[in-house]
């Protein structure tokens, strides 16, 4: 997919685990793993907002367009 999810990098920078983020944004770990591994087909604005709030970042920090 041309859109890459950089959640792993952000979590590493914030020294936060995926489980911790899942608990703080109230999303299941399974769904967050799908997002992290780039297997998600779409992301809700509410999810994006919650992640950006907790990780104190911009949507652009989380998503990146990489032409195939």
């Amino acid at each position: 997919m041309a859109i890459a999810v950089k959640l792993d990098d952000l979590l590493h920078e914030r020294r936060m685990t995926l489980t911790e983020l899942a608990e703080r944004i109230d999303i299941t770990l399974a769904n967050l793993s799908i997002l992290k591994t780039g297997k998600a087909r779409a992301i809700r604005f509410s999810t994006l907002e919650a992640i950006c709030t907790v990780l104190a970042c911009q949507p652009g920090d989380l998503l990146e367009y990489r032409p195939d």
């Binding site: 999303i27 769904n31 967050l32 799908i34 997002l35 297997k39 998600a40 087909r41 779409a42 992301i43 809700r44 999810t47």
Partner: peptide, 8 residues
């Protein structure tokens, strides 16, 4: 539904 299932 397939789209929705892949939505996080």
């Amino acid at each position: 539904r397939e789209d929705l299932e892949g939505t996080v």
